[in-house]
Nucleic acid binder design. Structure first.
Length: 407
RNA sequence: GGAGGGGUACCAAAGUGGCCAACUGGGGCGGACUGUAAAUCCGUUGCGUAAGCUUCGAAGGUUCGAAUCCUUCCCCCUCCA
């Protein structure tokens, strides 16, 4: 290889390593990169997706961003929509048996999914495939043959299975097929690098095992860390509600980003922003020596996120609104409006009618706790009647506003 | 097939005849403070203006009175086979 080619390999390796939790085995990656650079053949990247959860959030983008970087380096990505595996059910949640999705549902889920994903990935370097295309035609004999390459002991290496086995909790036989199928996807696609979170390690390595069985070159498992959610403790997930969805509106996204614990900022910068490495170091040292205000750093982060998913204008606007509402204590320009009847209304009823409280008891509670403002004036009298005027602004808590429009 | 354990509010988990609209923790919400919706602290968390009403897997029953006792049913889990 020429010195230029060697340099290219080194460059790619550096980029791929960035933020990665683990690369198994790294020597294989180097070998594949050398091969790719020498021959001009792009590497085949794979990411498996579960079509049952159509909303993607920042946690998912950690892996997606890495794929994007690989695409930028010239490689091609296969997005495997698990329309077959999805019906089997992911072993991790034992409680809910998954509803079988209809063909149409899978299609439409996959479409919304992919649309969101292309906010991060290059559409022209991404191939979307469905694993039912090659998994469904397998015969029982095929499946048995696949299964015969593995042992129960090997399966029980998986932490989740091991734990359940130890605790005498049930493990269904079909759950063993999940990693097997995912591994077979890699065989089918002749995958060079499979991406996933660190929690996917077992499945990713299973791909290597199966590829070897099939006499293929083994894939590299590239694992990204799991991003902590807004609470700073648990991994970001929709069910925990600690997520920022990529399809969320700019203001929500900005606000949620502002609510992450300070300690989490560097991680978010590293894993989900496009801020270059050098700048990142600047921010970190600034935070450390106190020359950079944590609030300003976080606003920068929030702005970056909005810019990434909604564009420059939306980002600027979100920042402006934040300043206006939270730093200056003012009102947002664009608050929801509600049609109201004019005249005197009991405040409790008004709050419920406007959807600011779910029940009268809750409305009363808000009032008693001093959480209600009308045109900026705090109102605590539970029995109060208010004269509804056009343009009147009712606020509950710090961030819920409604402007009344009298019919 | 046999034996046992369990289903309580958003979640976890107390309560085993009245003092239980139900301890406590988490979460959520409100407030104070701040540097932001960080951190911390305080309050609050079924519905109802109220009297009161409806909740403890479901349906019946006993009782002046049941989350607590009885009957039937549904669901979950464990062990043995």
């Amino acid at each position: 290889m020429t010195p230029e080619q060697e340099a290219e390999v080194a460059r790619q390796l550096r980029m791929i390593r960035r933020g990665a939790a683990e690369i198994v085995p790294e020597e294989d990656l180097v070998r594949k990169l050398r091969q790719s650079v020498a021959t001009g053949q792009p590497l085949r990247i794979k990411l498996g997706l579960d079509p049952t959860a159509p909303d993607i959030h920042l946690g998912h983008t950690v892996v997606l961003q890495k794929i994007r970087q690989l695409q930028d380096l010239g490689h091609v990505a296969h997005l495997v929509i698990g329309n077959f595996t999805g019906q089997i059910g992911d072993p991790t949640d034992k409680s809910e048996t998954r509803r079988q999705l209809s063909e149409d549902e899978v299609q439409s889920n996959a479409q919304t999914y992919v649309a969101q994903i292309f906010k991060v990935l290059h559409p022209d370097k991404t191939e979307v495939v469905y694993n039912a295309d090659w998994l469904a035609p397998l015969t029982f004999a095929d499946v048995v043959r696949l299964a015969s390459t593995l042992t129960v002991a090997r399966m029980l290496e998986r932490e989740d299975f091991q734990k359940r086995f130890r605790e005498n909790r049930p493990i269904h036989i079909h759950e063993f097929f999940y990693p097997l199928m995912q591994a077979y996807d890699s065989v089918h696609l002749r995958t060079d690098i499979e991406l996933g979170g660190t929690d996917q390690k077992f499945n990713l390595l299973m791909g290597r095992t199966l590829q070897r069985e099939f006499g293929q070159e083994q894939q590299v498992a590239l694992m990204m860390p799991l991003l902590e959610g807004l609470d700073g403790v648990n991994k970001m997930s929709k069910s925990l509600g600690n997520y920022i969805g990529v399809a969320e509106d700019p203001h929500t996204m900005f606000g949620k980003a502002m609510s992450i614990p300070d300690e989490l900022m560097p991680r978010y910068f590293e894993l989900v922003s496009e801020v270059p490495l050098e700048e990142l170091e600047c921010i970190q040292s600034g935070l450390k020596d106190g020359s950079l205000h944590p609030r300003d750093a976080k606003m920068r982060l929030a702005g970056e996120l909005v810019r990434r998913f909604h564009g420059e204008d939306a980002s600027r606007e979100a920042v402006a609104r934040w300043r206006q509402v939270f730093q200056a204590g003012g009102l947002p320009d664009d608050m929801p409006e509600a049609e109201c009847n004019g005249g005197e209304v009991w405040i409790v009823e008004l709050l419920v009618n406007l959807g600011l409280a779910v029940s009268r008891s809750e409305a009363r509670r808000f009032l008693e706790q001093g959480g209600v403002r009308i045109d900026g004036e705090r109102l605590q009298d539970v029995d109060a009647k208010v004269e509804v005027r056009d343009g009147m602004v009712i606020q509950v808590g710090k961030r819920r506003f409604v402007r009344c429009r009298v019919r």
